[in-house]
Amino acid sequence: MGGSEIERLVALLARLPGLGPRSARRIVLHLLERRETLLDPLVAALGTAGARVRPCSVCGNLDTEDPCAVCRDERRDASVICVVEGVADLWAIERAAAFRGRYHVLGGALSALDGIAPDDLAIEQLVARVGQGRVTEVILATNATVEGQTTAHYVAERLAEAGVTVSRLAHGVPVGGEIEYLDEGTLGAALRARREL
């Protein structure tokens, strides 16, 4: 068994999502055995990220520069804002490469159970952004959960006076989804949101 530094590293790594003490120990050993190729670059990368990554003051995305790369990109459509609950959602939509507008990260969803109220989310900032006049459409890409949709309705209500189109993502059959295995809620939503072919 290693010294206290190694134990401390194992304990810290074990707190990461998807890892436990066993996998943390394997990772530590793996890193220590590949000092030049893996450990040193990782230490440097962690240090830089820790020192430089900040939330974007415009949209809330995480980046080393402020405003973030998405907000700075002139080729992106500044008239459309996609509102997401968290940075993970923003990254997921970016991976899909199907959206060329800007984003707004709320920082969560309204939740009675967790005591998250409108003031805890970046809703005021969104209203202010829309109020600047360049925006024509706001897409609400919150989760299809009770909390997510409650948040979407609340944001839509707040933007009612702003004179912009407010839309939300469709709910329905996922690509590759088999109807037989879909839950009743999704099937019902898919039927209600059916389209003419």
Binding site: A112, V146, E147, Q149, T150, E157, T186, R192
Partner: peptide
Amino acid sequence: AAEAAHLLDRADRLAALAAAAA
């Protein structure tokens, strides 16, 4: 019964559901 899924599009009813549960 997936009661919540039927209410996701209806702002007032969804708000009532969330309020009652809270």
